[in-house]
Amino acid sequence: MSKEPGRVVLAAEDIVKTYRSGERRIDVLRGVDLAIREGESVSIRGESGSGKTTLLNILAGLERADAGRLFWQGEQVSGRSLNHLAVRRRGFIGMVFQAYYLVPELNALDNVILAGRIAGKNTRLLRERARALLARVGLAERVDHLPSRLSGGECQRVAIARALINEPPLILADEPTGNLDERTAEDVIDLLLGLCRETRTALVLVTHNAEHARRTSRQCRLHLGRLEA
């Protein structure tokens, strides 16, 4: 947790999202407001189907809100094209997913580097930084291993290293421990929170786990389409 409040890195105002299923209308988000400051960690809990992942996707610019405004580092990005958001996201947001989403054909090192290469960074420098990050997450000896030869916990560590390779000011983590056993989940959360604290990276953690949520600097709950503190 940051000792002094930093700049707002991400702000969402009155975000609305509705899905239609035939004649049925499902109001997933009914005016969500959220501001994330530099170095801050925020957890979002909620029942299954409450719209946590939808909110995270909207915050990441992977999905459009039906209404509301989204600001990344003060720049309003709602209404921008998905391609513009993709380019803008490269150095701004690191993402960690429940199912890791590592490229099965690339080894751990190349998976970490991939995010940097997409951001157009120098491969040699990326390689050095990726090795350091993998060492930091405890995988120094496994850089050449393919995801198929890594355990679930190890895969998630690689995914965390990948999220940090571009030194983004914000990490969005969507149930990063959802596929892990209790012990491994603890290790991964320790690592994620520790790394974010070290690098003053803001974190939005979507989780079902109340213990994990309590360890963040701010806890929110998504209920009936609204975010409650």
Partner: peptide, 9 residues
Amino acid sequence: LFAALGART
């Protein structure tokens, strides 16, 4: 994933 990492279409 590529899109999430910032890849253009």
